[in-house]
Design a protein around this nucleic acid. Structure first.
Lengths: 231, 231
DNA sequence: GGCGCCCGTTAAAAAACGTTAAGCCCATGT
DNA sequence: ACATGGGCTTAACGTTTTTTAACGGGCGCC
């Protein structure tokens, strides 16, 4: 059973936003609509999305800044920009931020759909299963359901545990920057949030300790690295 | 089981970057993607890569400067440049910096793959094992896991110990320049960092003293030299 | 041979991280 | 309203990692 592709849509114009949302829903997507960049960013870090559609001009936080924040810890998820006018600079800046595409308003619904599908076809190569789960060593992890399937029990993760593990997995075998992670999950990288994160690292280590080949290694002063040793 | 060859890819255009990353991943490589030269340099010094692909034009630090920095302490790891236009001067400068090959954009994925494999076949002469470990005298060293297997115990190295030992090993039987090492690991070669490095040299000497054939020799005013005497 | 500088080593200080437990807040059911 | 419980933060204490200090020895050079 193929899981629904979930889209994060950030659009301040509620008219257009809802129109797009309903349209995409009829096409079989799950769509979460945010009305400004800030809530969109929070939503992104809470949830688990396969695709992003961001309006460039938005209150609180514009689409480009939003994309930049997301790219600090996630270089995978495709982002498509909606831009009001055909501005050359806009296009250039967007692409340098790792946009996978852009669309100039006004546009046809069908064109949007075509672009989305094209990008998804091109990009989808992660070691993620069809149902959204993935393996960490011998442990099955379902981010959307916040479940960790261990030998016997199957552990329910809390929001924060899940966010942190998701980031670690996204950066598997690579450094997850401490500051970036704090900004992504806590919104601010002060001392106390840092201590809080360390507590969650301890929790995750305990949860994952059943598989000896998994290690959350600390890189002093830089961050953490999820290592999965080869068999 | 053959370890995945790990590639450091520095490319500011995330579109192209991700495209290359996913392509190379499907071909069995481990790919770490950095969006500018500076983070790429940090990543290089922290991690352990078998191959580098650098875009020439990048923000923060361009590909040539990046290569120059790396070549100060690593003369082995192959570097392939991606250049926008076929500029003769670029090529010349690149080769003088120790580039192993070039590719002019746009290029075919398959060609990139062919070049990589050609270089790896040609260059791979390191005494590195298939699993990424290597021997220093009679001591087994696993840089990615930061482990040093001595007679009885197996010592976990700290981040800094590991970085320094990696540099020494890369320049085995050759001088590791003091200033270059400081810039590589500490980012700055001031007095205090220098003293700090001396402390780590002492630590490594102590750790390696179980094997009499290994010596970290000082070359006055120049740097250090890791010497492994023949049996 | 004396003097400055660089290095060797050990110890102390400081910073970062590891872990456990206690406290706090908020939602929920009674 | 009151208790209950889960989730998150803060506190407290321990350990590890890194830096700085301190002191002694070696090297090169006039």
């Amino acid at each position: 059973m193929k899981k629904n592709t979930s889209i994060l849509l950030a659009e301040d114009d509620l008219n257009l936003g809802q129109l797009l949302q309903t349209f995409l829903k009829t096409k079989g997507f799950e769509v979460s609509l945010a009305q400004n960049g800030k809530t969109a960013l929070e939503r992104f870090h809470e949830g688990s999305f396969d695709f992003c559609i961001f309006d460039v001009m938005m209150p609180e936080m514009d689409g480009f800044t939003l994309a930049k924040e997301i790219r600090e810890i996630d270089k995978q998820t495709p982002i498509l920009f909606l831009t009001a006018k055909a501005m050359k600079e806009d296009k250039l800046e967007g692409f340098s931020l790792g946009a996978d595409d852009y669309l100039t308003k006004p546009f046809a619904m069908e064109e949007l759909l075509a672009r989305i599908n094209a990008i998804l076809r091109r990009v989808d190569t992660s070691d993620e299963e069809e149902d959204g789960s993935r393996m960490i060593g011998a442990i099955k992890y379902e981010p959307e359901l916040r479940l960790l399937h261990l030998e016997e029990e199957t552990k329910k993760l809390t929001t924060k545990e899940n966010q942190l593990l998701t980031l670690l997995v996204k950066n598997q075998n690579d450094i997850l920057d401490r500051q970036a992670a704090l900004r992504a999950i806590w919104g601010d990288d002060n001392y106390f949030n840092g201590r809080s994160m360390d507590v969650y690292i301890a929790k995750l280590r305990k949860a994952l300790k059943s598989d000896e080949s998994i290690e959350i290694m600390n890189v002093h002063g830089k961050g953490f690295k999820l290592i999965v040793k080869e068999a």
